[in-house]
Design a protein around this nucleic acid. Structure first.
Lengths: 257, 257
DNA sequence: TTATCATTGTGTCAAATTAACACAAAGCTT
DNA sequence: AAGCTTTGTGTTAATTTGACACAATGATAA
Protein backbone atom coordinates (compact mmCIF):
# COMPACT_ATOMS: atom_id res chain seq x y z
CA UNK A 1 0.00 0.00 0.00
CA UNK A 2 1.40 3.44 -0.83
CA UNK A 3 1.23 5.97 1.97
CA UNK A 4 1.34 9.48 0.62
CA UNK A 5 -1.89 10.49 2.31
CA UNK A 6 -1.63 8.99 5.75
CA UNK A 7 -4.22 11.36 7.07
CA UNK A 8 -6.73 10.46 4.47
CA UNK A 9 -9.07 7.69 5.37
CA UNK A 10 -8.69 4.76 3.03
CA UNK A 11 -11.43 4.86 0.48
CA UNK A 12 -13.66 1.89 0.91
CA UNK A 13 -13.84 -0.84 -1.64
CA UNK A 14 -17.49 -0.16 -2.32
CA UNK A 15 -17.07 3.57 -2.66
CA UNK A 16 -14.23 3.28 -5.16
CA UNK A 17 -16.07 0.94 -7.46
CA UNK A 18 -19.54 2.52 -7.46
CA UNK A 19 -21.28 5.80 -7.94
CA UNK A 20 -21.96 7.32 -4.56
CA UNK A 21 -25.37 8.33 -3.25
CA UNK A 22 -27.11 6.17 -5.81
CA UNK A 23 -28.55 2.70 -5.55
CA UNK A 24 -30.90 0.48 -7.46
CA UNK A 25 -33.66 -1.63 -5.96
CA UNK A 26 -35.56 -4.29 -7.82
CA UNK A 27 -39.12 -5.34 -7.17
CA UNK A 28 -39.12 -8.79 -8.70
CA UNK A 29 -42.62 -10.06 -9.31
CA UNK A 30 -43.48 -13.69 -9.78
CA UNK A 31 -46.75 -15.58 -10.08
CA UNK A 32 -47.45 -18.93 -8.48
CA UNK A 33 -50.59 -20.75 -7.45
CA UNK A 34 -52.74 -17.74 -8.21
CA UNK A 35 -50.67 -15.54 -5.94
CA UNK A 36 -48.39 -12.67 -6.81
CA UNK A 37 -44.97 -13.13 -5.26
CA UNK A 38 -42.11 -10.74 -4.57
CA UNK A 39 -38.53 -11.83 -4.24
CA UNK A 40 -37.11 -10.64 -0.91
CA UNK A 41 -33.88 -11.08 0.99
CA UNK A 42 -33.77 -11.80 4.71
CA UNK A 43 -31.82 -9.33 6.84
CA UNK A 44 -29.72 -11.17 9.44
CA UNK A 45 -30.45 -10.67 13.15
CA UNK A 46 -33.71 -8.96 12.37
CA UNK A 47 -37.20 -9.94 11.40
CA UNK A 48 -37.00 -7.83 8.27
CA UNK A 49 -36.81 -8.32 4.55
CA UNK A 50 -35.18 -6.23 1.87
CA UNK A 51 -35.52 -5.81 -1.85
CA UNK A 52 -32.68 -7.14 -3.93
CA UNK A 53 -30.64 -4.09 -4.72
CA UNK A 54 -27.18 -2.81 -5.25
CA UNK A 55 -25.05 -0.06 -6.58
CA UNK A 56 -24.15 1.31 -9.96
CA UNK A 57 -20.64 0.59 -11.18
CA UNK A 58 -18.63 3.60 -12.28
CA UNK A 59 -19.08 2.85 -15.95
CA UNK A 60 -22.46 1.19 -16.23
CA UNK A 61 -26.00 2.49 -16.63
CA UNK A 62 -28.70 2.09 -14.01
CA UNK A 63 -30.45 -0.37 -16.33
CA UNK A 64 -27.30 -2.39 -16.54
CA UNK A 65 -26.90 -2.37 -12.78
CA UNK A 66 -30.47 -3.52 -12.31
CA UNK A 67 -30.19 -6.40 -14.76
CA UNK A 68 -26.83 -7.38 -13.30
CA UNK A 69 -28.36 -7.45 -9.83
CA UNK A 70 -31.37 -9.35 -11.10
CA UNK A 71 -29.15 -11.93 -12.71
CA UNK A 72 -27.18 -12.35 -9.50
CA UNK A 73 -30.31 -12.79 -7.40
CA UNK A 74 -32.35 -14.99 -9.73
CA UNK A 75 -29.96 -16.42 -12.29
CA UNK A 76 -32.24 -14.98 -14.95
CA UNK A 77 -31.30 -13.00 -18.00
CA UNK A 78 -33.27 -10.96 -20.46
CA UNK A 79 -36.37 -10.53 -18.36
CA UNK A 80 -38.84 -7.66 -18.40
CA UNK A 81 -37.24 -4.93 -16.33
CA UNK A 82 -38.26 -1.29 -16.10
CA UNK A 83 -37.40 1.67 -13.98
CA UNK A 84 -40.53 3.13 -12.42
CA UNK A 85 -39.66 5.69 -9.75
CA UNK A 86 -36.86 7.37 -7.87
CA UNK A 87 -37.06 7.39 -4.08
CA UNK A 88 -35.10 10.28 -2.69
CA UNK A 89 -36.63 11.30 0.60
CA UNK A 90 -33.63 12.27 2.77
CA UNK A 91 -35.30 10.48 5.67
CA UNK A 92 -35.79 7.16 3.89
CA UNK A 93 -32.96 5.53 5.82
CA UNK A 94 -32.49 5.49 9.55
CA UNK A 95 -28.68 5.64 9.60
CA UNK A 96 -28.47 4.58 13.23
CA UNK A 97 -30.46 1.38 12.80
CA UNK A 98 -28.68 0.67 9.60
CA UNK A 99 -25.24 1.03 11.14
CA UNK A 100 -26.13 -1.16 14.12
CA UNK A 101 -27.19 -3.86 11.77
CA UNK A 102 -24.19 -3.69 9.51
CA UNK A 103 -21.70 -3.75 12.38
CA UNK A 104 -23.08 -7.14 13.48
CA UNK A 105 -21.89 -8.55 10.18
CA UNK A 106 -18.31 -8.66 9.02
CA UNK A 107 -18.47 -5.55 6.90
CA UNK A 108 -15.30 -3.42 6.88
CA UNK A 109 -15.73 -0.13 8.70
CA UNK A 110 -15.04 1.86 5.55
CA UNK A 111 -17.80 0.12 3.70
CA UNK A 112 -20.15 0.65 6.61
CA UNK A 113 -19.44 4.34 6.56
CA UNK A 114 -20.22 4.44 2.87
CA UNK A 115 -23.31 2.27 3.19
CA UNK A 116 -24.70 4.52 5.89
CA UNK A 117 -24.39 7.68 3.86
CA UNK A 118 -27.43 9.05 2.17
CA UNK A 119 -28.72 7.12 -0.87
CA UNK A 120 -31.21 7.91 -3.53
CA UNK A 121 -32.53 4.73 -5.03
CA UNK A 122 -33.89 4.04 -8.48
CA UNK A 123 -36.76 1.56 -8.33
CA UNK A 124 -37.02 -1.08 -11.05
CA UNK A 125 -39.64 -3.72 -11.36
CA UNK A 126 -39.16 -7.05 -13.03
CA UNK A 127 -41.54 -9.75 -14.16
CA UNK A 128 -40.03 -13.20 -14.02
CA UNK A 129 -41.00 -16.80 -14.43
CA UNK A 130 -41.40 -18.10 -10.88
CA UNK A 131 -40.34 -21.61 -11.84
CA UNK A 132 -37.09 -20.54 -13.43
CA UNK A 133 -35.80 -18.07 -10.86
CA UNK A 134 -33.25 -19.34 -8.33
CA UNK A 135 -33.48 -16.98 -5.36
CA UNK A 136 -29.94 -16.22 -4.21
CA UNK A 137 -29.02 -14.04 -1.22
CA UNK A 138 -26.37 -11.35 -1.44
CA UNK A 139 -23.42 -10.53 0.79
CA UNK A 140 -25.63 -8.68 3.29
CA UNK A 141 -28.37 -11.24 3.67
CA UNK A 142 -28.89 -14.79 4.78
CA UNK A 143 -31.64 -16.10 2.57
CA UNK A 144 -33.64 -15.19 -0.47
CA UNK A 145 -37.29 -16.16 -0.84
CA UNK A 146 -40.44 -15.65 -2.77
CA UNK A 147 -42.88 -13.92 -0.44
CA UNK A 148 -46.58 -13.32 -0.86
CA UNK A 149 -47.15 -9.89 -2.30
CA UNK A 150 -50.17 -9.36 -0.10
CA UNK A 151 -48.36 -10.33 3.07
CA UNK A 152 -44.59 -10.11 2.60
CA UNK A 153 -43.72 -9.44 6.24
CA UNK A 154 -41.83 -6.46 7.63
CA UNK A 155 -39.77 -4.66 5.05
CA UNK A 156 -36.64 -2.65 5.72
CA UNK A 157 -36.53 1.13 5.32
CA UNK A 158 -38.99 2.37 2.71
CA UNK A 159 -39.04 -0.87 0.79
CA UNK A 160 -42.71 -1.39 1.48
CA UNK A 161 -43.48 1.88 -0.23
CA UNK A 162 -41.27 0.87 -3.14
CA UNK A 163 -43.16 -2.40 -3.54
CA UNK A 164 -46.52 -0.66 -3.42
CA UNK A 165 -45.45 1.92 -5.96
CA UNK A 166 -44.19 -0.84 -8.23
CA UNK A 167 -47.52 -2.61 -7.99
CA UNK A 168 -49.41 0.59 -8.76
CA UNK A 169 -47.20 1.10 -11.79
CA UNK A 170 -47.72 -2.47 -12.93
CA UNK A 171 -51.48 -2.03 -12.69
CA UNK A 172 -51.33 1.09 -14.79
CA UNK A 173 -49.04 -0.49 -17.36
CA UNK A 174 -51.32 -3.47 -17.64
CA UNK A 175 -53.49 -1.44 -19.97
CA UNK A 176 -50.65 -0.41 -22.22
CA UNK A 177 -48.27 -3.30 -22.12
CA UNK A 178 -48.47 -6.98 -22.91
CA UNK A 179 -47.74 -8.20 -19.41
CA UNK A 180 -47.65 -11.91 -18.88
CA UNK A 181 -44.95 -12.97 -21.26
CA UNK A 182 -42.47 -12.96 -18.44
CA UNK A 183 -44.70 -14.11 -15.64
CA UNK A 184 -45.97 -17.30 -17.18
CA UNK A 185 -44.24 -20.29 -18.63
CA UNK A 186 -43.84 -20.50 -22.38
CA UNK A 187 -47.11 -22.32 -22.88
CA UNK A 188 -50.10 -21.37 -20.81
CA UNK A 189 -53.86 -21.54 -20.85
CA UNK A 190 -56.35 -18.74 -21.16
CA UNK A 191 -57.63 -19.28 -17.60
CA UNK A 192 -54.06 -19.04 -16.32
CA UNK A 193 -53.52 -15.75 -18.10
CA UNK A 194 -56.82 -14.47 -16.79
CA UNK A 195 -55.93 -15.44 -13.23
CA UNK A 196 -52.70 -13.48 -13.62
CA UNK A 197 -54.58 -10.39 -14.69
CA UNK A 198 -57.13 -10.82 -11.94
CA UNK A 199 -54.40 -11.20 -9.37
CA UNK A 200 -52.53 -8.13 -10.48
CA UNK A 201 -55.67 -6.04 -10.67
CA UNK A 202 -57.16 -7.50 -7.55
CA UNK A 203 -60.59 -8.11 -9.05
CA UNK A 204 -62.52 -10.67 -11.06
CA UNK A 205 -62.92 -10.38 -14.79
CA UNK A 206 -65.50 -11.93 -17.04
CA UNK A 207 -64.04 -15.03 -18.64
CA UNK A 208 -65.57 -14.51 -22.07
CA UNK A 209 -64.95 -10.79 -22.30
CA UNK A 210 -61.41 -11.28 -21.13
CA UNK A 211 -60.69 -13.82 -23.82
CA UNK A 212 -62.18 -11.66 -26.53
CA UNK A 213 -60.21 -8.62 -25.45
CA UNK A 214 -56.87 -10.34 -25.02
CA UNK A 215 -57.22 -12.07 -28.39
CA UNK A 216 -58.01 -8.77 -30.06
CA UNK A 217 -54.54 -7.57 -29.07
CA UNK A 218 -53.10 -10.19 -31.45
CA UNK A 219 -50.23 -10.99 -29.16
CA UNK A 220 -51.19 -14.61 -28.55
CA UNK A 221 -50.74 -17.70 -30.63
CA UNK A 222 -53.21 -20.48 -30.13
CA UNK A 223 -51.49 -23.85 -30.12
CA UNK A 224 -52.86 -27.10 -31.40
CA UNK A 225 -52.43 -28.61 -27.97
CA UNK A 226 -54.31 -28.86 -24.76
CA UNK A 227 -53.07 -28.91 -21.22
CA UNK A 228 -53.05 -32.52 -20.06
CA UNK A 229 -53.33 -34.11 -16.64
CA UNK A 230 -55.68 -31.44 -15.46
CA UNK A 231 -59.03 -31.92 -13.81
CA UNK A 232 -62.11 -31.18 -15.90
CA UNK A 233 -62.12 -30.09 -19.48
CA UNK A 234 -58.60 -29.73 -20.91
CA UNK A 235 -57.92 -26.10 -21.80
CA UNK A 236 -56.17 -25.06 -24.99
CA UNK A 237 -52.60 -23.87 -24.72
CA UNK A 238 -51.36 -20.54 -25.98
CA UNK A 239 -48.02 -18.89 -26.21
CA UNK A 240 -47.02 -15.31 -26.92
CA UNK A 241 -46.57 -14.41 -30.54
CA UNK A 242 -43.09 -12.95 -30.79
CA UNK A 243 -43.88 -10.35 -33.44
CA UNK A 244 -47.15 -9.27 -31.96
CA UNK A 245 -45.71 -9.11 -28.49
CA UNK A 246 -42.84 -6.89 -29.50
CA UNK A 247 -45.04 -4.70 -31.62
CA UNK A 248 -47.27 -4.21 -28.58
CA UNK A 249 -44.25 -3.41 -26.40
CA UNK A 250 -43.35 -0.63 -28.81
CA UNK A 251 -46.74 0.75 -29.68
CA UNK A 252 -48.83 0.00 -26.65
CA UNK A 253 -52.10 -1.85 -26.64
CA UNK A 254 -54.71 0.82 -26.95
CA UNK A 255 -55.05 4.55 -27.23
CA UNK A 256 -57.13 7.06 -25.39
CA UNK A 257 -58.87 9.94 -27.11
CA UNK B 1 -9.05 28.33 6.23
CA UNK B 2 -7.71 25.43 8.29
CA UNK B 3 -4.91 23.44 6.70
CA UNK B 4 -4.70 20.02 8.28
CA UNK B 5 -4.75 18.18 4.94
CA UNK B 6 -2.48 20.15 2.69
CA UNK B 7 -2.19 17.27 0.29
CA UNK B 8 -5.83 16.85 -0.06
CA UNK B 9 -7.41 18.85 -2.81
CA UNK B 10 -9.84 21.35 -1.43
CA UNK B 11 -13.31 19.99 -1.76
CA UNK B 12 -15.26 22.13 -4.17
CA UNK B 13 -18.09 24.28 -3.04
CA UNK B 14 -20.55 22.40 -5.24
CA UNK B 15 -19.37 18.99 -4.15
CA UNK B 16 -19.66 19.78 -0.47
CA UNK B 17 -23.20 21.07 -0.69
CA UNK B 18 -24.73 18.52 -3.04
CA UNK B 19 -25.09 14.81 -3.56
CA UNK B 20 -22.50 13.66 -6.03
CA UNK B 21 -23.22 11.85 -9.29
CA UNK B 22 -26.81 12.99 -9.25
CA UNK B 23 -28.53 15.83 -11.01
CA UNK B 24 -32.03 16.93 -11.84
CA UNK B 25 -33.19 18.29 -15.19
CA UNK B 26 -36.53 19.92 -15.78
CA UNK B 27 -38.44 19.91 -19.04
CA UNK B 28 -40.66 22.93 -18.54
CA UNK B 29 -43.57 22.97 -20.95
CA UNK B 30 -45.52 26.05 -21.82
CA UNK B 31 -48.26 26.78 -24.33
CA UNK B 32 -48.51 29.95 -26.35
CA UNK B 33 -50.16 30.87 -29.63
CA UNK B 34 -51.07 27.28 -30.31
CA UNK B 35 -47.49 26.15 -29.91
CA UNK B 36 -45.90 24.03 -27.25
CA UNK B 37 -42.87 25.72 -25.77
CA UNK B 38 -39.93 24.45 -23.73
CA UNK B 39 -37.91 26.60 -21.42
CA UNK B 40 -34.23 26.41 -22.35
CA UNK B 41 -31.04 28.10 -21.23
CA UNK B 42 -28.42 29.35 -23.64
CA UNK B 43 -24.92 27.94 -23.22
CA UNK B 44 -22.32 30.70 -23.60
CA UNK B 45 -19.80 30.54 -26.46
CA UNK B 46 -21.79 27.82 -28.16
CA UNK B 47 -24.86 27.53 -30.29
CA UNK B 48 -26.42 25.15 -27.82
CA UNK B 49 -29.22 25.12 -25.34
CA UNK B 50 -29.64 23.27 -22.08
CA UNK B 51 -32.49 22.22 -19.86
CA UNK B 52 -32.79 24.05 -16.57
CA UNK B 53 -31.24 21.69 -14.10
CA UNK B 54 -29.22 21.48 -10.98
CA UNK B 55 -28.13 19.36 -8.12
CA UNK B 56 -29.67 17.86 -5.06
CA UNK B 57 -28.77 19.44 -1.74
CA UNK B 58 -27.48 17.08 0.91
CA UNK B 59 -30.71 17.12 2.85
CA UNK B 60 -33.42 17.58 0.26
CA UNK B 61 -35.39 15.21 -1.96
CA UNK B 62 -35.14 15.14 -5.72
CA UNK B 63 -38.67 16.56 -5.90
CA UNK B 64 -37.60 19.40 -3.69
CA UNK B 65 -34.55 20.06 -5.82
CA UNK B 66 -36.64 20.10 -8.96
CA UNK B 67 -39.21 22.52 -7.59
CA UNK B 68 -36.46 24.71 -6.16
CA UNK B 69 -34.77 24.82 -9.57
CA UNK B 70 -38.07 25.47 -11.27
CA UNK B 71 -38.77 28.35 -8.94
CA UNK B 72 -35.34 29.83 -9.59
CA UNK B 73 -35.75 29.58 -13.37
CA UNK B 74 -39.36 30.67 -13.71
CA UNK B 75 -40.32 32.37 -10.47
CA UNK B 76 -43.19 29.94 -10.25
CA UNK B 77 -44.32 27.92 -7.29
CA UNK B 78 -46.69 25.05 -6.86
CA UNK B 79 -46.81 23.99 -10.48
CA UNK B 80 -47.40 20.54 -11.89
CA UNK B 81 -44.06 18.76 -11.63
CA UNK B 82 -43.35 15.05 -12.01
CA UNK B 83 -40.34 12.85 -12.33
CA UNK B 84 -40.58 10.73 -15.45
CA UNK B 85 -37.29 8.99 -16.17
CA UNK B 86 -33.72 8.55 -15.05
CA UNK B 87 -30.99 9.01 -17.63
CA UNK B 88 -27.91 7.10 -16.64
CA UNK B 89 -26.03 6.14 -19.77
CA UNK B 90 -22.35 6.48 -18.79
CA UNK B 91 -21.70 8.07 -22.18
CA UNK B 92 -24.35 10.77 -21.89
CA UNK B 93 -21.77 13.48 -21.24
CA UNK B 94 -18.70 14.19 -23.34
CA UNK B 95 -16.39 15.22 -20.48
CA UNK B 96 -13.86 16.81 -22.84
CA UNK B 97 -16.34 19.16 -24.52
CA UNK B 98 -17.92 19.89 -21.21
CA UNK B 99 -14.63 20.84 -19.58
CA UNK B 100 -13.59 23.04 -22.50
CA UNK B 101 -16.80 24.90 -22.17
CA UNK B 102 -16.67 25.35 -18.43
CA UNK B 103 -13.09 26.61 -18.44
CA UNK B 104 -14.12 29.49 -20.69
CA UNK B 105 -16.32 30.70 -17.88
CA UNK B 106 -15.11 31.77 -14.47
CA UNK B 107 -15.85 28.51 -12.74
CA UNK B 108 -13.35 27.48 -10.04
CA UNK B 109 -11.23 24.52 -11.07
CA UNK B 110 -12.57 22.41 -8.22
CA UNK B 111 -16.10 22.92 -9.33
CA UNK B 112 -15.14 22.11 -12.90
CA UNK B 113 -13.62 18.85 -11.79
CA UNK B 114 -16.80 18.00 -9.97
CA UNK B 115 -19.06 19.12 -12.80
CA UNK B 116 -17.17 16.96 -15.26
CA UNK B 117 -17.51 13.80 -13.25
CA UNK B 118 -20.16 11.33 -14.24
CA UNK B 119 -23.77 12.30 -13.51
CA UNK B 120 -26.98 10.40 -13.53
CA UNK B 121 -29.87 12.77 -14.04
CA UNK B 122 -33.45 12.52 -12.92
CA UNK B 123 -35.79 13.98 -15.51
CA UNK B 124 -38.78 15.98 -14.33
CA UNK B 125 -41.38 17.61 -16.47
CA UNK B 126 -43.38 20.65 -15.51
CA UNK B 127 -46.46 22.27 -16.95
CA UNK B 128 -46.52 26.01 -16.40
CA UNK B 129 -48.51 29.04 -17.38
CA UNK B 130 -46.51 30.65 -20.15
CA UNK B 131 -47.66 34.13 -19.25
CA UNK B 132 -46.62 33.91 -15.63
CA UNK B 133 -43.18 32.36 -15.97
CA UNK B 134 -40.19 34.69 -15.90
CA UNK B 135 -37.36 32.84 -17.65
CA UNK B 136 -34.19 33.40 -15.65
CA UNK B 137 -30.72 32.08 -16.59
CA UNK B 138 -28.53 30.31 -14.05
CA UNK B 139 -24.87 30.78 -13.19
CA UNK B 140 -23.71 28.74 -16.18
CA UNK B 141 -25.85 30.35 -18.85
CA UNK B 142 -26.42 33.69 -20.49
CA UNK B 143 -30.10 33.74 -21.32
CA UNK B 144 -33.25 31.83 -20.68
CA UNK B 145 -35.97 31.55 -23.30
CA UNK B 146 -39.12 29.83 -24.35
CA UNK B 147 -38.27 27.80 -27.44
CA UNK B 148 -40.58 26.04 -29.85
CA UNK B 149 -40.94 22.44 -28.85
CA UNK B 150 -40.91 21.32 -32.46
CA UNK B 151 -37.76 23.24 -33.29
CA UNK B 152 -35.85 24.13 -30.14
CA UNK B 153 -32.38 24.30 -31.77
CA UNK B 154 -29.31 22.28 -30.81
CA UNK B 155 -29.48 20.85 -27.33
CA UNK B 156 -26.54 20.03 -25.12
CA UNK B 157 -25.59 16.45 -24.24
CA UNK B 158 -28.59 14.14 -24.23
CA UNK B 159 -31.07 16.90 -23.49
CA UNK B 160 -32.87 16.36 -26.76
CA UNK B 161 -33.59 12.79 -25.74
CA UNK B 162 -34.78 14.00 -22.36
CA UNK B 163 -37.21 16.44 -23.98
CA UNK B 164 -38.55 13.78 -26.33
CA UNK B 165 -39.02 11.32 -23.51
CA UNK B 166 -40.84 13.97 -21.50
CA UNK B 167 -43.17 14.63 -24.40
CA UNK B 168 -43.87 10.94 -24.86
CA UNK B 169 -44.67 10.71 -21.18
CA UNK B 170 -46.93 13.73 -21.33
CA UNK B 171 -48.83 12.21 -24.25
CA UNK B 172 -49.35 9.01 -22.34
CA UNK B 173 -50.39 10.82 -19.18
CA UNK B 174 -52.86 12.88 -21.13
CA UNK B 175 -55.24 9.94 -20.97
CA UNK B 176 -54.93 9.51 -17.25
CA UNK B 177 -54.36 12.97 -15.91
CA UNK B 178 -56.20 16.25 -16.06
CA UNK B 179 -53.53 18.15 -17.97
CA UNK B 180 -54.25 21.76 -18.75
CA UNK B 181 -54.74 23.21 -15.33
CA UNK B 182 -51.17 24.41 -15.30
CA UNK B 183 -50.76 25.23 -18.95
CA UNK B 184 -53.66 27.61 -19.32
CA UNK B 185 -54.65 30.72 -17.51
CA UNK B 186 -57.25 30.45 -14.80
CA UNK B 187 -60.11 31.10 -17.16
CA UNK B 188 -60.03 29.63 -20.62
CA UNK B 189 -62.35 28.65 -23.42
CA UNK B 190 -63.17 25.22 -24.71
CA UNK B 191 -61.45 25.87 -28.05
CA UNK B 192 -58.31 26.91 -26.18
CA UNK B 193 -58.31 23.72 -24.17
CA UNK B 194 -58.88 21.72 -27.30
CA UNK B 195 -56.00 23.43 -29.09
CA UNK B 196 -53.79 22.51 -26.18
CA UNK B 197 -54.73 18.86 -26.46
CA UNK B 198 -54.31 18.92 -30.20
CA UNK B 199 -50.89 20.48 -29.89
CA UNK B 200 -49.68 17.99 -27.34
CA UNK B 201 -51.03 15.05 -29.28
CA UNK B 202 -50.04 16.43 -32.63
CA UNK B 203 -53.38 15.77 -34.31
CA UNK B 204 -56.80 17.29 -34.80
CA UNK B 205 -59.72 16.35 -32.63
CA UNK B 206 -63.42 16.70 -33.31
CA UNK B 207 -64.71 19.80 -31.58
CA UNK B 208 -68.00 18.34 -30.43
CA UNK B 209 -66.65 14.99 -29.33
CA UNK B 210 -63.82 16.69 -27.49
CA UNK B 211 -66.22 18.85 -25.54
CA UNK B 212 -68.42 15.94 -24.64
CA UNK B 213 -65.49 13.88 -23.43
CA UNK B 214 -63.75 16.58 -21.45
CA UNK B 215 -66.99 17.57 -19.76
CA UNK B 216 -67.68 13.96 -18.82
CA UNK B 217 -64.53 14.03 -16.70
CA UNK B 218 -66.24 16.56 -14.44
CA UNK B 219 -63.10 18.56 -13.88
CA UNK B 220 -64.36 21.76 -15.49
CA UNK B 221 -66.59 24.48 -14.21
CA UNK B 222 -68.55 26.42 -16.76
CA UNK B 223 -68.56 30.13 -15.93
CA UNK B 224 -71.32 32.59 -16.55
CA UNK B 225 -68.98 34.65 -18.66
CA UNK B 226 -67.79 34.81 -22.20
CA UNK B 227 -64.45 35.77 -23.59
CA UNK B 228 -64.71 39.35 -24.85
CA UNK B 229 -62.86 41.26 -27.52
CA UNK B 230 -62.53 38.21 -29.66
CA UNK B 231 -63.48 37.88 -33.31
CA UNK B 232 -66.62 35.92 -34.10
CA UNK B 233 -68.92 34.36 -31.60
CA UNK B 234 -67.76 34.89 -28.04
CA UNK B 235 -66.88 31.55 -26.45
CA UNK B 236 -67.90 30.63 -22.92
CA UNK B 237 -65.21 30.64 -20.27
CA UNK B 238 -64.38 27.68 -18.06
CA UNK B 239 -62.06 27.08 -15.22
CA UNK B 240 -60.91 23.91 -13.51
CA UNK B 241 -63.05 22.64 -10.71
CA UNK B 242 -60.74 22.29 -7.74
CA UNK B 243 -62.36 19.21 -6.26
CA UNK B 244 -62.86 17.42 -9.54
CA UNK B 245 -59.36 18.25 -10.67
CA UNK B 246 -57.73 16.87 -7.56
CA UNK B 247 -59.93 13.81 -7.54
CA UNK B 248 -58.83 13.14 -11.11
CA UNK B 249 -55.19 13.63 -10.15
CA UNK B 250 -55.60 10.92 -7.56
CA UNK B 251 -57.81 8.47 -9.34
CA UNK B 252 -57.02 9.02 -13.00
CA UNK B 253 -59.52 9.80 -15.66
CA UNK B 254 -60.49 6.44 -17.07
CA UNK B 255 -59.74 2.82 -16.56
CA UNK B 256 -58.78 0.11 -18.93
CA UNK B 257 -60.15 -3.42 -18.63
C1' DT C 1 -77.37 49.69 -41.45
C1' DT C 2 -77.15 45.34 -43.20
C1' DA C 3 -74.98 41.35 -45.21
C1' DT C 4 -71.17 38.33 -44.72
C1' DC C 5 -68.46 35.08 -42.57
C1' DA C 6 -65.80 32.49 -39.39
C1' DT C 7 -66.52 30.48 -35.20
C1' DT C 8 -69.19 28.67 -31.23
C1' DG C 9 -72.87 25.76 -29.04
C1' DT C 10 -75.71 21.86 -29.30
C1' DG C 11 -78.13 17.48 -30.97
C1' DT C 12 -78.64 13.25 -33.62
C1' DC C 13 -77.66 8.95 -35.61
C1' DA C 14 -74.82 5.08 -36.90
C1' DA C 15 -70.90 2.28 -35.75
C1' DA C 16 -68.03 0.21 -32.57
C1' DT C 17 -67.02 -1.33 -28.17
C1' DT C 18 -68.13 -3.17 -23.78
C1' DA C 19 -70.91 -5.61 -20.34
C1' DA C 20 -74.00 -9.16 -19.14
C1' DC C 21 -75.43 -13.48 -19.77
C1' DA C 22 -76.53 -19.03 -21.33
C1' DC C 23 -75.56 -23.31 -23.07
C1' DA C 24 -73.05 -27.14 -25.08
C1' DA C 25 -68.72 -29.88 -24.78
C1' DA C 26 -65.01 -32.11 -22.33
C1' DG C 27 -62.96 -34.91 -18.97
C1' DC C 28 -62.15 -36.28 -14.20
C1' DT C 29 -64.67 -38.33 -10.05
C1' DT C 30 -67.65 -41.48 -8.02
C1' DA D 1 -72.67 -44.27 -16.64
C1' DA D 2 -74.12 -40.23 -14.02
C1' DG D 3 -72.52 -36.17 -11.82
C1' DC D 4 -69.76 -32.26 -11.34
C1' DT D 5 -66.67 -28.67 -12.62
C1' DT D 6 -64.44 -26.16 -15.96
C1' DT D 7 -63.71 -24.76 -20.80
C1' DG D 8 -65.15 -22.84 -25.36
C1' DT D 9 -68.22 -20.03 -27.89
C1' DG D 10 -72.23 -16.88 -29.32
C1' DT D 11 -75.98 -13.49 -28.61
C1' DT D 12 -78.07 -9.36 -27.01
C1' DA D 13 -78.51 -5.00 -24.70
C1' DA D 14 -76.17 -0.93 -22.98
C1' DT D 15 -72.70 2.28 -23.43
C1' DT D 16 -69.29 4.80 -25.73
C1' DT D 17 -67.28 6.70 -29.72
C1' DG D 18 -67.14 8.77 -34.33
C1' DA D 19 -69.16 11.38 -37.92
C1' DC D 20 -71.85 14.86 -39.11
C1' DA D 21 -75.56 19.36 -39.62
C1' DC D 22 -77.53 23.36 -38.31
C1' DA D 23 -78.75 27.37 -35.65
C1' DA D 24 -76.71 31.29 -32.95
C1' DT D 25 -73.36 34.91 -32.25
C1' DG D 26 -70.75 38.90 -33.00
C1' DA D 27 -66.98 41.22 -35.45
C1' DT D 28 -66.01 42.87 -40.12
C1' DA D 29 -66.97 44.46 -44.65
C1' DA D 30 -70.03 46.47 -47.87
Amino acid sequence: MTAPHTNVQKISEMASRHLSSLSVDCVVFGFHKNEMKVLLLKIPYKDEWALPGGFILRDESAENAASRILKERTGLDGVFLRQFHVFSDPGRVKPRDHRDNLTRMNIPENDIKWLCSRFVTIGFYALVDYTRAVPTPDEFTTRSEWRDLTDPGMLMMDHRVIVNTALDTLRLQLNNLPIGYNLLREKFTMPELQKLYETILGRKLDRRNFQRKILSYRILLRLDERKTGVAHKAPVLYRFDYDGYHRALEEGLKGGF
